[in-house]
Design a protein around this nucleic acid. Structure first.
Lengths: 326, 326
DNA sequence: GTGAAAGCGCTAACAT
DNA sequence: ATGTTAGCGCTTTCAC
């Protein structure tokens, strides 16, 4: 009753095509180094199609020791909608390599990522934030062949250029005293620090003092306090960790009866849909999720093949979008 | 090199505990109807622990025919951060039943959800939006034992009450001519229609005409046009499909030099973090994701057990948050 | 109460 | 070029 439809196995396909299961496996998996006549090939494909054959994933991965499943672990943090674009791109790029992406949201009450990794038999797992050494070890012992990023910080690579671009934008517009709005959420801290680092280097390169970094929650009062402080210190432009934080800064300004960019210029990051709806419309630096996803996919494929892989450069993937706030 | 660590199998555990693999399986899976001495049980648990034994998921699901994996399919639509709360709750509730949740973002270029379902050998798949009859069939033939929601619209159940609550809020505040801001994004249409339906019924119940429904993108000009139309028609309060859309409406008002709630009251839905940062802070109706997740989990568990399950009521899971915009 | 043995559906040496 | 065969690690029926 529970399982009325008997599964179609490769045996069925073999029988219909008049060959052995081995041949079916070879053809369907397109194994290299085999010379199988076009004719046989076609018969097998046809048989598989008419039978609507779907290889049993568990059986396959049990036998092969690999699973073609890639797990993306998303930490429990307030992520903007941008991330879903990234996931889509990543999934698409992986799919082109025959890999399937599934994602796991690390929640406080959910199960540890290593458990999930083991349960789905993922052969690779990607962390949005780098894994600690212990976490990585746990993942490996949970069966993951590849764990990315392999070295802490590598995935944050895109973060630093963002901060750099933000600061540069403001510097180009004549600001000499910058501020940086860090997110209050602790899980976001690593990312925030990375972006701040980028801003620092941009200032240093321009012979300017480092930005005055302040962290703020998404509460108006909190943001208003930060704004007060920046203004008191002579800051004229602030880069925000992301657009949400930038919108908070804008709200903080409004709270004081001030506004951007006159009293304080502000530039966000991520280009969320509501950025242009802000008052005033928010300047922001957007990055090329498509490229990021494709690059990450390439790294996974390489890691799965046991090769080291250079992530390449971020060149050209950032774009600053100038709106009224700066 | 690629696989230096030999897997720890149940055989190892059996050996260390001095029993057979059968017994290990019985104990570790806590199979009912077996009377195994506490002593033996303990030995097995200990052995498993010291060996750090992790059952091989693929082998298990191959043999058992079930996988304990639940796949959540998320359609390609601009989702707010609220959804991740829901996913977390759902994952936690499923975890309590020994089920593991993974999610798949349906992208234009990704693979079809049925493929993913087959690849991960999910035994249940949940759609955020209902599946078409064909899609559900494909999922079943991909190995899914349960596909939810079983009947179109059931998952949208929460949508209608939202619209109802929004309209009621405005009606309570004396508005008699309502507007409804539908999202322009086509993928969001089903949800939007459902919420609108709820608003319609609230108006009908109050003896008022149905809300003037207009759809708007997240572009200021677009929203401004809608605002113009509402105002021309004598609308004094509008419910927006979600907070993003509501923020667009606020921006549209601003574009005309007007503001909420004086010129037009507006109430959103979802209570996104930036709702309170809007100008003016946005009134919104929030719903209890925790409860929604737990209920969905219960439905999955029931479906997996082959039982029909009543989703229960939405009673008390909605909360309207009054801020300055209404 | 516990163990032996037969698969689950597939892959991959090894034969032919 | 194709078939034979032996597992992958686990569950589960059936004897003991």
């Amino acid at each position: 009753m529970t399982r009325p439809a008997k599964r179609i196995t490769s045996e069925d396909v073999a029988r219909l095509a008049g060959v052995s299961r081995t041949t079916v496996s070879f053809v369907l998996n397109n194994r290299p180094g085999q010379s199988i006549p076009e004719e046989t090939r076609r018969r097998i494909f046809d048989a598989a199609k008419t039978l609507q054959y779907r290889p049993h994933a568990s059986a396959r991965s049990l036998a092969a020791g690999r699973s073609d499943i890639v797990l993306l672990s998303i930490p429990d943090l307030p992520i903007g909608s941008g991330i879903s674009r990234y996931i889509e791109e990543l999934a698409a790029a992986l799919a082109e390599n025959g890999l399937t992406l599934v994602t796991h949201l690390e929640g406080a009450h959910g199960r540890p990522v290593a458990d999930v990794c083991a349960t789905v038999a993922a052969s690779a797992v990607i962390g949005l934030l780098p894994f600690t050494r212990e976490a990585a070890a746990a993942l490996h012992s949970a069966g993951a062949v590849a764990v990315l990023p392999p070295h802490a910080g590598e995935d944050l690579e895109i973060m630093e250029p963002v901060g750099h671009a933000q600061a540069t934008h403001l510097i180009d517009r004549g600001h000499t005293q910058l501020g940086y709005a860090l997110p209050a959420h602790t899980a976001l801290k690593p990312m925030g620090d990375e972006r701040l680092r980028g801003a620092n280097s941009a200032c240093a390169a321009a012979g300017l003092p480092a930005p005055l970094a302040l962290s703020t929650s998404l509460e108006i009062a909190d943001a208003a306090a930060a704004v007060r402080q920046w203004l008191d210190q002579g800051v004229t432009g602030v880069c925000a960790f992301n657009d949400d934080t930038a919108i908070a800064v804008l709200a903080g300004l409004r709270e004081h009866g001030l506004s951007a960019p006159g009293d304080l210029a502000v530039v966000g990051a991520d280009d969320i849909p509501t950025a242009r709806l802000a008052s005033p419309p928010l300047s922001t630096v957007a990055f090329d999720l498509h490229q990021a996803g494709a690059r990450q996919a390439a790294a996974v494929v390489a890691a799965l093949a046991g090769q080291d892989h250079d992530l390449g450069t971020t060149e050209g993937s950032l774009r600053v979008i100038q709106r009224a706030s700066s």
